[in-house]
């Protein structure tokens, strides 16, 4: 390799009302609009919108997961900033509640009522599914 790549990335994850993560990680995966983006140390500068999904970060070989909604990621040579409107740690998610929401969204999507807001239901479904997924990855 021509130049030495840094060993870790300085990552910050912020929402409008709190700082969720600030520290060094080995790798981070974020839900880009057109699919998950994996970011390793030495990544080229990048700017992308994010969608509802799961943020995964690897820290000293251990993987942690977060739920997030719309946001964007900015990759700079020395740091990565993830700005999302909402983010939840696995232990903050109530899987039962998410399941109920999932079922309600599915019911809405199946309904033949012309007044149903499909877009909203689809969005709710996506949120619920991702919440359940993140909650199931809770680190023991």
């Amino acid at each position: 390799m021509a130049e030495d790549l840094p060993k870790s990335i300085h990552l910050t994850i912020v929402t409008p009302d709190r700082l969720l993560f600030n520290g060094e990680v080995d790798a981070v995966t974020v839900p880009g609009l057109r699919g998950y983006l994996g970011i390793l140390p030495g990544h080229a500068p990048l700017l992308s919108e994010l969608r509802v999904g799961m943020i995964s970060l690897v820290q000293e070989g251990r993987e942690n997961h977060l739920f997030c909604t719309w946001g964007f990621v900015e990759v700079l040579p020395d740091r990565v900033s993830v700005l999302v409107e909402q983010a939840e740690l696995p232990e903050e998610i109530d899987p039962e509640k998410a399941k109920v929401e999932k079922e309600r969204a599915e019911l809405l999507l199946r309904s033949k009522d012309p007044k149903t807001n499909y877009e909203q239901a689809l969005f709710a479904l996506e949120e619920a599914v991702n919440r359940i997924q993140v909650a199931s990855r809770r680190t023991a």
Binding site: G32, L33, R34, L37, A44, P45, L46, L47, S48, E49, F72, E74, V75, L76
Partner: peptide, 14 residues
């Protein structure tokens, strides 16, 4: 910062 990002979406869209 004048940085040439890789834009996943066109800058105008973002």
């Amino acid at each position: 910062v004048f940085l040439d990002y890789i834009y996943e979406q066109p800058p105008q869209v973002i």
